Simulated scan of single mutants.
Amino acid sequence: MPDLPEAKPVLVTGATGRIGKVVVADLIERGYAVRATTSKPLAADGGEVDGLLEWRRFDFMVDDDWDGLVNGCCAVLHLAAELGKMERMQQVNVEATRQLAEAAERQGIAAFCYASTVSVYGSGRQRLIDETSPVLTVDRDIASQYWALDYVRMYGRTKLAGELALRAVAKRTRFTILRPAVVVDINQLIGIRDWSPIKRLLAAHRHAHHIYVGDVSDAMIWFIVRGLAGRGLPGEVEVYNLAEDDCPDPRHIDFMRKAFSVSHDRRYKSVPIPAIADWLHDFLRFRTLPLRNPLWRMRFSNQRLKEAGYRFRYGMADAQRLALSTLEKSAGIREAER
Rank of each mutant, 00 (worst) to 15 (best):
W195F: 08
T176P: 03
P197W: 04
L189Y: 05
R200H: 12
L136M: 03
D150R: 12
F175E: 02
L166Q: 00
R179H: 06
L202R: 13
H209G: 02
H209D: 02
R157E: 03
R193F: 09
R172I: 11
R172C: 09
Y146L: 13
H210G: 13
N187G: 15
V169K: 08
V135W: 04
D185G: 10
T173G: 04
K171V: 12
G162C: 07
W147C: 10
R167H: 12
V183I: 12
D141E: 09
A161T: 01
Y155A: 03
H205K: 10
Y146V: 13
V135R: 05
Q145M: 07
K171M: 14
D194C: 11
W147P: 04
D141F: 07
L149T: 13
E163W: 03
S144Q: 06
I211V: 06
A204N: 02
S144Y: 10
A161I: 02
I198C: 09
A165T: 06
F175H: 05
D139A: 09
S144V: 06
L149K: 15
R140H: 11
T158K: 01
A204W: 00
R157F: 00
L136D: 01
I186K: 07
A170V: 06
R179F: 05
I211L: 04
S196Q: 08
A208G: 06
W147Y: 12
H210E: 13
V152G: 10
S144I: 06
I177W: 02
D194S: 13
T173W: 01
A161Q: 05
K159N: 03
I198Q: 14
I142G: 13
I186G: 04
R206C: 08
W147H: 10
F175Y: 08
L189E: 03
L201W: 11
N187V: 13
K199C: 14
T173H: 02
L178C: 08
T158D: 01
R206G: 05
I142L: 12
A204M: 03
D141V: 08
A143Y: 12
